[in-house]
Design a protein around this nucleic acid. Structure first.
Lengths: 334, 334
DNA sequence: CTGAAAGCGCTTACAG
DNA sequence: CTGAAAGCGCTTACAG
């Protein structure tokens, strides 16, 4: 039975217990200095009245929302959903909830409109899978909001980033293809301005160079230049290549499916290496050879760093120094 | 150049323009009655001072957060991420952002701990992919928070639900298998208490009955009874069945992958029908025969209903009356 | 069309 | 260990 019909506030608890607002607040927030007896009385009243704290009021006064923003362009790519889930689970342990933001494919970069929402909502920190627009960097830095770019290196040193060892991933992938006897190897990317894309491409180039295989610009294609996977697949069939290293698994699935429609099969016609090891999380009955990231570890690292940034603990720099390791997982496409 | 170093508030805009707080608020919220000239002065000051409204303060006073909660148990299942993305995109058009909540696999139901977070944060509405625990129903109804269950029917009439026509989906799936000459058809579910599961199973039973095929309880297995996909796959190999209708695609992928490890192939050893048509969104190079849901339409419906509920417009009942239609998509597994 | 005052529900100094 | 007061930054009646 709830004695009050609606909206039980800290004030009601005070009236009920005969204590001051201050004391109630202290007990509820477990701030030092109150007696066991006081605590008991408060908790009993809280229970009896069915009091639920108003987090909005608390945020306004305390200046923190216990909420972290997560930003991406496309939640549908399982890499993002797996990472988001891992991050959210880790944050939950420190009682942070998350808001997710996207510009719904309008841009591959974090822009001012979206960032202003985050500022307006007084979120405590931001984890972004999207690189900020270069013009936005100053704003982000000046805002003082703890900001962490995940999985990308970023275009400015002032933006902290938890990066993957993308060049190593590219090398592993292409070394593997070369080891299988391929020399005409295509690189399929998303957009050359994305740092992860650039890193993976760099590894591709290095592996070719290490084996004295000349790099052919024709063998490189970006989705940003072809718009659709269909066009990209068509382009691929025009190239005299027999192996592909592709920016990520999500792209790989789409392109392999388009190739199938054109009668081209993997691995019969193309050896294929992807990136992200999506199949592990989804248990897909497709076994792509792919560069694998330990998303659990990465999510944990991202949250560790973010919490340190929120607390003003500068030791997080240590964690960011070395990129997250990657490894090659052999599937049935090479 | 920003004249003020930090935290520009409505007060600064008032000082700058010589107008009252009231007027500034009116202009910013586009409430009726202010002159063009006033608007110009306010907007100019907003621009010059770089004012960004404090959404927390606004929420506390106005009693709404312009935020919707989305609740699920597992963001990794692409069905949820696709739906979440569709819902978020539709909500964004009405300037709502989202918070996502999960109990991280701890339960298949929405519980009090999670719901209290939503109450505490004063979220304007809830879209839940999880059925509430029966004990929680009273609390939800009494809270007055607009609540919509999506994709499930729920266990209580007081909880509004946007349901799929699961029985129809089950009938379509099993009629198709029967049409292909199968009579020993297994049903693999998640948990019999989930309404979507019960609905699909009902369709399964009805299709069998319509063709005079006796229903065999041994042919029915739930993940909740076997814990792991491995155990479920093992169980399946012990059954004398040659066809499977499975609760969803995500399960299907996992089980088909486990079967492969045991040398059992789809469709060679089992004809297979899934549910959700995940492959459409992800362009997977696996073509499952599956019952397809129009997630774009469903996301739009869910948001339409929710906005009406928020606005107190009762006409949303019309939309909920008929379940979302489903259709069979033929793949290569039957 | 504009202004002055009150208040949303908390937490934070400051006293005692 | 506890209390009384102020205030976070807005919006909402209420006047004029």
């Amino acid at each position: 039975m709830k004695p009050t019909e609606k909206k039980v506030t800290i004030r009601d608890i005070a009236a009920e217990t005969g204590l001051s607002l201050n004391t109630i607040s202290k007990v509820l927030n477990k701030k030092p200095y109150y007696s066991k007896e006081t605590e008991r009385r408060v908790m009993e009243a809280v229970q009896r009245l069915g009091y639920i704290p108003n987090a909005i009021a608390s945020s306004l006064r305390a200046g923190r929302s216990k909420t972290v923003a997560i930003v991406f362009d496309d939640l549908i790519n399982p890499y993002y959903s797996v990472m988001t889930f891992s991050i959210a689970r880790n944050l939950a342990q420190s009682r942070y909830d998350i808001m997710v933001f996207s510009n719904y494919g309008a841009s591959s970069f974090l822009d001012a409109t979206l960032f202003n929402k985050i500022v307006s909502r007084k979120l405590d920190a931001v984890i972004s899978f999207l690189e900020p627009q270069p013009e936005l960097t100053d704003t982000i830095v000046q805002s003082g909001i703890p900001f962490l770019l995940v999985g990308r290196k970023g275009n400015d040193e002032r933006i902290d980033a938890l990066a993957l060892d993308d060049a190593e991933g590219g090398r592993l992938a292409v070394e593997h293809l070369i080891g299988r006897g391929h020399t005409r190897i295509a690189y399929i990317g998303a957009h050359p301005a994305i740092s992860a894309d650039a890193g993976r491409f760099q590894g591709y180039c290095e592996a070719l160079a290490a084996h004295g295989i000349p790099q052919c610009n024709d063998y490189v294609a970006y989705l940003s230049d072809y718009q659709t996977f269909e066009a990209l697949a068509r382009r691929l069939t025009e190239l005299p290549v027999d192996a592909v290293f592709c920016f990520n698994d999500s792209f790989s699935y789409s392109i392999i499916d388009e190739l199938r429609r054109r009668g081209k099969l993997v691995p019969r016609d193309y050896a294929w290496v992807g990136y992200d090891n999506i199949q592990r999380a989804l248990s897909l009955p497709v076994h792509l050879t792919t560069v694998s990231i330990d998303t659990d570890y990465m999510g944990k690292c991202a949250v560790d760093v973010l919490l340190k940034k929120i607390e003003g603990d500068d030791s997080y720099h240590e964690i960011l120094k070395k990129p997250i390791a990657v490894s090659l997982v052999l599937g049935e496409t090479t």
